[in-house]
Design a protein around this nucleic acid. Structure first.
Length: 234
DNA sequence: CGCCAGGTTGTTG
DNA sequence: CAACAACATGGC
């Protein structure tokens, strides 16, 4: 588990997830390794985490840019604007009707449950904070964990389709294992370190895009060798 | 043109 | 409870 991380880390270096959108640019800034996110940045991460559900990131960037250019980018804005107009703004991200509804729901959650203080979620124990998010319609385990890890700095490992594909192909578990099982596996096999969790997930995505596509599986995969070497030198 | 992308929910057997 | 459909745009 750690061996794979080290290998990916050497290959790809620091990923500095989660990115921020400034102007028309998507930036991965090292400073986020050091400091906490501002409430505005957390809200952007929440928004991005919802918009990126089963969607390519560049489409999400387009949607976020449109929202910002329209001056619609706060929980209050999301609650005020008619859902049809919100949907139109986020159209490039796909599933725009569903996602507009989800953004409305999270904005409502921030006002009601969090009393308008987005940072207050961080004061709850991880289990409770996670449950609050999972209870919302439209927030599943990956979205919740992305928000908790990258937005608030809770130590949860984010599992996505890439994570399952890469590690099932490497033989760690069956492709369609339960989300929680996979998460536990990583969290038990790694030091409980937020920066490690953040980087590892980002590295898995990077690697999967290059070497672990659905088609042409395992072509040029250098991770198989890592496991093989570990095996014979163990 | 077909496949896929940093999922989640609702329905069905 | 597993399997499947529905949701939708943009890039290759």
């Amino acid at each position: 588990m750690v061996e794979i991380y080290n290998e990916l880390s050497v290959r790809y270096g620091q990923r500095n997830w989660w990115p921020v959108i400034q102007g028309d640019e998507c930036l991965y800034l090292p400073e986020f390794q050091e400091r906490k996110r501002t409430p505005e940045e957390i809200f952007e991460i929440i928004t991005g985490a919802i918009l990126t559900q089963n969607t390519a990131w560049p489409n999400v960037v387009k949607a976020i840019i449109r929202l910002k250019q329209a001056g619609i980018f706060s929980p209050a804005d999301f609650e005020t604007i008619p859902v049809s107009e919100l949907a139109e703004l986020i159209r490039p991200a796909g599933y725009f009707n569903q996602k507009a509804k989800k953004l409305k729901i999270i904005a409502c959650f921030i006002r009601n449950d969090l009393r308008g203080d987005i940072l207050s979620l961080e004061k709850f124990p991880l289990i409770e904070a996670r449950k609050k998010l999972l209870d919302l319609w439209g927030i599943g385990p990956e979205t919740a964990d992305s928000i908790l890890l990258y937005g608030y700095g809770f130590p949860v490992f984010v599992v996505d389709a890439y994570t399952k594909r890469v590690f099932s192909r490497l033989g760690f578990f069956p492709e369609k294992s339960d989300y929680e099982e996979v998460r536990q596996l990583f969290e038990k096999g790694l030091p409980k370190d937020v920066r490690l969790y953040r980087e590892y997930h980002a590295l898995i995505v990077e690697f999967a895009k290059e070497f672990c596509r659905k088609k042409t599986p395992c072509d040029g995969c250098f991770l198989q060798n890592v496991l093989f070497n570990k095996c014979i030198f163990a």
